[in-house]
Design a protein around this nucleic acid. Structure first.
Lengths: 248, 248
DNA sequence: TCGTACGGTGTATATTGTACAGAGTACGAT
DNA sequence: ATCGTACTCTGTACAATATACACCGTACGA
């Protein structure tokens, strides 16, 4: 009996860093991992992450579905690769200005990325596997916190805190968009449909503050939820919160 | 031809407020929406939200799968009901103390809820449909911000900001737990498996700050990511950020 | 008393990720 | 130069998902 050949089963980290063994046996590959990932990103941008199915992506690439598994071990790894590619491709404006300006720029770059690729805000974990894109992003963004008197650990904490805020804000914005699109109603239609029931059920005697505050908030923004306002407000608060650490 | 009877198709809001028409024709229902929702929550707590399938939940209730659709129009509505039930059942300690103590209590109540029901942190939208549980929660939590000199709109902004932070922190913690469980490796094993590649690829010349800061952060917490620390740090920052608004 | 609205269910469908086996290809050892 | 074998690519197959639809029986309301 020959020794069981045990296909090495490419690790996600190896894949991210394109550190595959590359034993040139067999037919040449007709695609690259990068092409697969790029097609997946294109598809997700155009039709959402739920449109990125193995079959659909294969069709887009002119291959049979199972072919993709020669490039990527599974779907979750594909998503990780998509995210890292996105991070790798971010434009990185030089870090300059006051610490507030620098962190604002970092926040806005991230927000713009997630708004341009809404699927990413939902897919991105707080601590994605350390791919090259993720690392380059981390390296760049740490520059905004360098020289402020923070310890290394505090720099990491502060950056993670800022990025988590931005990701959540973008995710909430994307979700609000998606729900509006899915319901097929604009805010006015929604209110006409659901207003009567809400009026009956939201008893100001039972929920005095909720009714009062909810109404005030709803009137100021034109909608029940204004994502851009939430981002502006939250960013200001987040920077103020970091100020207490930085300017202490 | 008789007039098309057009089954009214229960709206999510009607369902949340249990405001169904209730036309007592036909056989008596053998279950209630609440029983279905309670069973779903039990199942999600025990085995995760992905275990809550129509078949499995029906089996748990001793019914045929399709039976559930008499109680709930679809799965997404079921999840919304589960969330609202969770919110309705939260213990609400009386609001007291300084504003910092009050908001800390609110944050910790929410964090505890999401840690006890990890599926909820992923499922909860920033602005869930206004069910009775959600409303009671909102009413209660607004108390913590009353009388601080904030406008109604600012109260809403501040609460949403705090809650989004807590939800994200809990979600990240749950995800870290899930990944650890799924990989079957503890942190040490993971490092032994992936350390060599990372050492080769994380070039301190290319990523000087990233390597330095990442190492420092990894050493302080025993793991690559310490969720509880992130919550503590973030909560302090978030309260400091709100202080700038409240004590202005 | 009887029509009909409704509860409960069996069957069926479209869609998903992916396991598995087979066919052809080209490198590397002999 | 030859040939085994590792590898690419693909067709088929399977398990699981949500849920549409038709049907059966029940019990209220006219």
């Amino acid at each position: 009996m020959t020794a069981a050949t045990e296909t090495p089963k490419p690790n996600l980290l190896e894949l991210l860093w394109r550190a595959a063994p590359e034993s040139g046996r067999g037919p040449r590959k007709k695609l690259t991992v990068d092409e697969v990932v790029a097609a997946a990103i294109r598809l997700a941008d155009a039709e959402g992450l739920e449109a990125v199915t193995v079959r659909r992506l294969a069709q887009e690439l002119g291959k049979a579905p199972m072919t993709l598994y020669t490039y990527v071990p599974g779907k979750s790894e594909l998503v990780a690769l998509m995210l890292d590619a996105l991070f790798a491709g971010m434009e990185r404006a030089p870090i300059a200005g006051s610490w507030r300006e620098r962190l604002t720029a970092v926040a806005q770059e991230n927000y713009a990325l997630y708004r341009a690729h809404p699927w990413a805000s939902a897919a991105a974990p707080s601590r994605p596997p350390l791919g090259p894109g993720q690392c380059a992003k981390y390296e760049h963004e740490l520059q905004a916190l360098e020289g402020l008197g923070l310890s290394d650990v505090e720099m990491d904490d502060a950056l993670a805190y800022l990025l988590a805020f931005v990701r959540t804000a973008a995710q909430d914005a994307a979700q609000a968009d998606a729900e509006r699109a899915a319901s097929g109603m604009d805010d006015q239609e929604w209110w006409e449909a659901n207003g009567p029931l809400l009026a009956k059920v939201l008893d100001p005697a039972r929920f005095p503050a909720a009714v009062r505050v909810g109404q005030a908030a709803g009137e100021v923004h034109d909608a029940a939820y204004n994502a851009e306002h939430a981002f502006e407000f939250g960013l200001a608060r987040t920077l103020d919160g970091l100020a207490a650490l930085i300017e202490r």
